[in-house]
Simulated scan of single mutants.
Amino acid sequence: MAHNTRMTGWIGWIWFAGVVMIVDGFFNAISGLYAIFNNDLYVQIRDKLLVLNLTGWGWVHLILGILLVAVGITLLMGQEWARMAAVVLVAVNAITQMAWLAANPWWSIVVIAVDVVILYALIVHGREAAALRD
């Protein structure tokens, strides 16, 4: 199946989404490691956030951060599957940030806002990602 996708000025949105996903992933991984090793520094509400304690959420953020970095890199390489994987991972990241809101409110709000912009870039301008490979 031949792609007849031409590169336009909107391709910058895909680059933006990929780069910000990588940065978002690194921040998630750092936040996760911090929660794993220094969980007494976060505010705790009844020692639980939803179903996990802070160390559990730290592991969630660490793993999600690693996945965000990996998929962000493949998105920049123009892989077709990376766009859908990126949409799913960024949406999951926004949801986990909602759960993390009690422990780190300001940071979670910023990350959710950035995730919304990434989702916009991937959904509205994502078809041009195939032009990155050509």
Score class of each variant (00 low, 15 high):
Met7Val: 02
Val90Gln: 14
Ala103Leu: 06
Val88Asn: 13
Val69Lys: 11
Asn104Gln: 15
Glu128Phe: 05
Asn93Leu: 04
Lys48Asp: 07
Leu41Ile: 14
Val114Tyr: 12
Leu52Gly: 02
Leu89Met: 13
Leu41Met: 14
Ala94Thr: 09
Thr8Met: 00
Gly18Phe: 04
Thr8Pro: 00
Asp115Gln: 10
Ile112Val: 15
Met21Ile: 07
Thr55Lys: 09
Val111Asp: 14
Ala129Tyr: 02
Ile36Leu: 00
Gln44Ser: 08
Arg127Phe: 00
Ala17Gly: 08
Ala131Gly: 01
Met21Trp: 01
Leu52Arg: 12
Met1Gln: 02
Ser31Ile: 05
Ile123Phe: 03
Asn4Gly: 02
Gly25Phe: 10
Val92Gly: 10
Glu80Ile: 04
Gly18Cys: 01
Trp81Glu: 00
Glu128Leu: 04
Ile109Gln: 11
Ile22Phe: 11
Ile14Asp: 00
Leu76Gly: 08
Phe16Gln: 04
Trp57Arg: 03
Ile11Asn: 03
Ala102Asn: 13
Met21Lys: 10
Glu80Gly: 07
Ile36His: 00
Asn39Cys: 03
Arg46Cys: 06
Asp24Pro: 07
Gln79Ser: 04
Met98Ser: 07
Ala2Trp: 01
Leu50Tyr: 12
Met77Gly: 01
Asp115His: 08
Phe37Arg: 00
Asp24Glu: 14
Leu132Glu: 01
Phe16Glu: 02
Gly78Thr: 01
Leu119Cys: 05
His125Phe: 00
Val87Lys: 04
Val117Ala: 15
Tyr34Glu: 10
Gln79Leu: 08
Leu41Arg: 14
Pro105Leu: 11
Asn28Lys: 15
Leu67Ser: 12
Trp15His: 07
Asp115Tyr: 10
Leu54Met: 14
